[in-house]
Amino acid sequence: MKYIYYSGCSLQGTALEYNVSTRAAMQALGSELVELEDWTCCGASAAEATSYLLAIVLAARNLALGERMEVGADFLIPCSACYLNLARVGEHVKQDPELLNKINEVLSEEGLSYKGGIKARHLLDVVATDFDPEDIDARVKRKLSGVRVAPYYGCQALRPYCSFDDPEQPQSMEPLIEALGAEVHPWTVGAKCCGAALMSTKKNVAIERVTGILAAARGADCIVTVCPMCQINLEGYQAKVSKTRGEALDISILYLPQLMGLALGLSEKELKLNLNLAFTDSFRAKLKTEK
C-alpha cells in the first residue's frame, strides 16, 4: 500500500522517534510512504483559537499539495491533532460548500487549489484497517510474549470523526497487540483525555488526568500511544505524579510503531527508543528475556 506521509511539526522535534519508528514499521510491513513535499503546519490548536478561516486554510494547504502530487493515495498522519485538523477540512466543506471558495481564494496566494477529493487518515486507522492481523503476525520476527501492553488511544484520533473504531470504547489496537505476541492490559481509560495542552496552561488539571491514566496502567509493562501530545504528557511527568501520589507509577511509554517495530525485528536504535523519556530498564530486561 502507498500513502502520502504528513509527519507534522512535533515529529521533527520532540516526537522525532515517532517519525522514525512510523517510517521503519510501515516499511517493515511492506508499505510505501511518499513524503508530502513542502508541507507546512496544520494549525495545531493555536490557529483555531485565533481565526477559523486561518485554521481551515493552513490544513487545506497541505491537502492541496497532496492532491497536486496525483499519486492516488490517502494521507497517513501519525499525530492526532494534525490528523483531526486535516480531516476537519473535508467534513466542513461537506457541510458548507461555500467554504471551498473561501479556501481556494486564500490558497491561490500560494498557487494552489483544493478540490476536496483526498482522504486524511490517522496512522492507527491505517494499521488497524488496511492490515490483517494475520499478515502482521506472519511478519513478526520476535514475539513479544509475556509483555503486557496498555493501549492508549487518546481523543482526537477517535473523536469527533471516527470511522474505524468505537470512539467510546476503542479496541482497534487489541488484535494488533495480540498479533505481536503481547498481551492486552484490560483497562477502561484508553479513550480518556491526557489533559492535552492544559499541561502548558493549567498544569495541575492536566496532572490529574495523567495520574488517573498512569494509576490505571498498574500491572502493565508499558503504555502505547498514537499521539505526540499524549506521549509527552504520559512520559514527561511520572516522577512528579509518583511523588504526589506516594507510590511509584513509573512505566515505559512507547509509540505504537515502536512496539510494532520491536516485534517486526527492528533494533532499539532503528526505533529511536533512546529518545523516549520513559523507557525503563525493567521493560528492556523483559524484552531481552522473553524471546
Partner: peptide, 27 residues
C-alpha cells in the same frame, strides 16, 4: 479549561458542535 477531548460533542443528544463552539469562544 476545555482540553478538546470531544466527548461532549460525541455524546450531545442534540448533535451540537460543542467543542468547536468552545473554539469560537476562545477566538
Amino acid at each position: 479549561l476545555c482540553s478538546a477531548c470531544y466527548f461532549c460533542t460525541l455524546r450531545c443528544p442534540r448533535g451540537l458542535p460543542l467543542t468547536e463552539t468552545i473554539g469560537a469562544l476562545k477566538r
